[in-house]
Design a protein around this nucleic acid. Structure first.
Lengths: 150, 150
DNA sequence: GTATCTATCTGAACTAGGTTCAAATTTTGA
DNA sequence: TCAAAATTTGAACCTAGTTCAGATAGATAC
């Protein structure tokens, strides 16, 4: 057994998919060549970043999900970008946004379970310099993600 | 001019894409037929929900993004599901999660601009019965979304 | 208003690559 | 240890993505 599943998940998470032109052609009743032209235009404009898969995360050992609010220490107010980009690099991190209000950053994190989430907080969040305070909001139930209803 | 762009965006947001088996085959050096078998298995298990596009949202008139925290009024504590599902139906809503902590729901919303966001709050959030309080956290800069770095 | 240039649309031919199938191999669990 | 089930794979097949050149529509300038 070659255990190809984890490789597929890794690749599909960020790309390795492509439009189904023929199916779209039937759906909206337009010629394939016309759709091809319009899709390539969107890609060349950079409007489409990638084509990827959306998973039922419970079924791929990423059933635990949390939003983490982060506040910087005063010394780091000037370099939120550095921290945001550092956090973005981790595979567990689905999204990173700089926000208005009482907190500076909100990130969405997916792990296998609470134990792995604890490790993530300890090994990634805590070790990042310049963080003053964090607050976890743990997802009890996900109704929609990445525009896909569950 | 047929103005196909909005139709493509609508379709690609939720699906109408498919895996690139040949490219994966080259990348991880496995036969196409083997990959096909493993991918179909993931699909049949329900591990893969769909294949879809990720956009540069600034370029498709969805540049404004906000997270909304929502608290229910006491009378609605027993039916958070109804409200969560109702909110999920709106095209502006990227995600909906029931969470622990001071708030009950967190939703991520994308609109063209602040004006459209205001309309969304007024027409969708305010009209939903059973909400006690909301708090918007507006995204000033997005570093990563849907696992895709920007 | 019309001429010219550019962008978009489209059918047809071409080609890449997804799918099927049957046989071989590996894994499972009785 | 053996039989059933799951996985792997090459080869043939066929769906569907891509290319291209001509047609059409839209934009710009005079």
């Amino acid at each position: 057994m070659k255990n190809i599943k984890p490789k597929l998940i890794r690749l599909f998470k960020g790309g390795y998919c492509t439009p189904q032109i023929a199916r779209i052609a039937k759906t909206i009743n337009e010629p394939s060549a016309t759709l091809h032209y319009n899709i390539k235009k969107l890609e060349n404009e950079g409007a489409i970043k990638t084509y990827k898969a959306v998973f039922d995360y419970k079924k791929i050992d990423e059933g635990f999900c949390a939003y983490v609010l982060i506040a910087f220490s005063p010394a780091e107010y000037s370099t939120p970008e550095r921290i945001a980009r550092a956090l973005s690099k981790h595979k567990e991190v689905e999204s990173v946004d700089l926000i208005t209000g009482d907190w500076e950053l909100i990130i969405k994190v997916r792990t296998k379970d609470q134990d792995e989430y604890y490790n993530f907080l300890r090994n990634v969040i805590s070790r990042e310099h310049g963080l003053q305070k964090t607050k976890s909001m743990i997802s009890l139930k996900q109704f929609k993600t990445e525009f896909i209803s569950l």
